[in-house]
């Protein structure tokens, strides 16, 4: 018997107004141009299998956010994902690109999201609120 708790994967999808090939290429090669994170840092997905996902901060720190575990353009991309934390906190993110009317559907599935680092993620909103009050 195991005490392991089951957590449903997080799933999100979006329509994109371009071909599957373009969507895959823009998602990966130009990750740093669309990723809505901290604007002072740069972000990159190295576009090949075993490539790293890297954040570079203004002070020159390089932080590994994960790695490419499957690289199947233009169908599918799979990453380990642990932004701001070590690999103990890694979940898996799968991104699938499928043809639909007038473009492409991008579907993202995040499994083992519950391992994300609590101190950086979970109560971020709460801590932010506390700092605003203080």
């Amino acid at each position: 018997m195991t005490n392991e708790e089951k957590h449903e994967p997080i799933r999100q999808s979006v329509h994109v107004d371009c071909s599957r090939e373009d969507a895959f290429r823009l998602f990966t090669e130009r990750f740093g141009e669309w990723w809505p994170g901290d604007a002072d840092s740069t972000h990159e997905i190295e576009p090949w299998k075993d490539g790293k996902i890297v954040q570079r901060t203004p002070s020159g720190d390089e932080r590994e956010w994960g790695a490419v575990t499957a690289w199947d353009p233009p169908d599918r991309l799979e990453l380990t994902w642990h932004p701001g934390a070590n690999t103990d906190h890694a979940g898996t993110v799968e991104i699938e690109f499928t043809v639909e009317a007038d473009g492409t559907r991008v579907t993202l599935t995040h499994t083992d999201w519950h391992l994300a680092q609590v101190d950086l993620v979970c109560f971020a909103g709460f801590v932010h609120e506390m700092m605003a009050v203080a």
Binding site: H7, I10, Q12, S13, V14, H15, V16, D17, C18, D22, A23, L26, F27, R30, E33, W34, W35, P36, V106, L108, H110, W113, H114, A116, V118, V121, C122, A124, G125
Partner: peptide, 20 residues
Amino acid sequence: LREHIDGMWRDALAAFSNFA
């Protein structure tokens, strides 16, 4: 935590869709 990560991906995919 789930809600936070879910919202993060929603924002990220919306940003990607606009960019594309």
